[in-house]
Design a protein around this nucleic acid. Structure first.
Lengths: 112, 112
DNA sequence: CGTGTAAGGAATTCTGACACG
DNA sequence: CGTGTAAGGAATTCTGACACG
């Protein structure tokens, strides 16, 4: 998960293709970026590149907008999700370190 | 497998991005299409669109070309692979039908 | 606030061709 | 055979702005 080189996360899709995949206008897609809902990378020249993951998020945004949810509300929802995910990732990493120490001790090794 | 809507098979990458991903020139990529090694789809206007699967194949082609393998030889290799895969798919489908009939019989049903 | 549109420029992509080897 | 390049045109994308509501 969260593998940057996975197909789903690789940012290679241009805005025109994203527009076709999502049914959103290029104007809308750029606006959602302005509102901090989506974060494409840029080519050297400045062209936006999106991942399939971005496309899925845009479809989610489109659904929420249809329900009348404002962009700042959508942003807050994503912020909350992100915070929760970060907390879980942090906990896993801490647990990983604890496990590592535990195994080192079982192997009879000492550490400072 | 072979799910047309999977990220890996979805044709959404433009030739410029493919060039960056593979290290091949656009000229080379178009030439390999001319030689029937790769089959991008086209947008309404005529722009080529590639999948991640196509990108992997192009990298494979690049490796073979470096070894001095000619495009027509590479094409033959792919033809052979394709034929073998098609045979396996056909066998699986036939086996599927046999299984379906067998299960129908077990359920005590008759068929013409 | 969210989205459409016209504007002008810069980069992208396309095809067919000539070149070299 | 495989690849580079210059050529000209058509479509793509970008930004900042005006419009409407």
């Amino acid at each position: 998960m969260e593998n940057e080189s996975s197909y789903k996360e690789r940012k290679v899709i241009s805005i025109g293709a994203v527009s076709e995949l999502t049914g959103l206008s290029e104007r809308q897609i750029r606006y959602y970026e302005e509102r901090k809902l989506i974060f494409p990378t840029r080519t050297e020249r400045g062209n936006r590149k999106y991942s399939f993951s971005d496309v899925e998020r845009l479809i989610d945004i489109a659904n929420k907008r249809e329900e009348g949810v404002r962009t700042d509300e959508i942003r807050m929802e994503y912020r909350k999700e992100k915070t929760r995910e970060d907390r879980e990732t942090r906990n896993k990493m801490i647990q990983g370190q604890i496990n590592a120490r535990f195994m080192t001790q079982k192997n009879g090794k000492r550490f400072s």
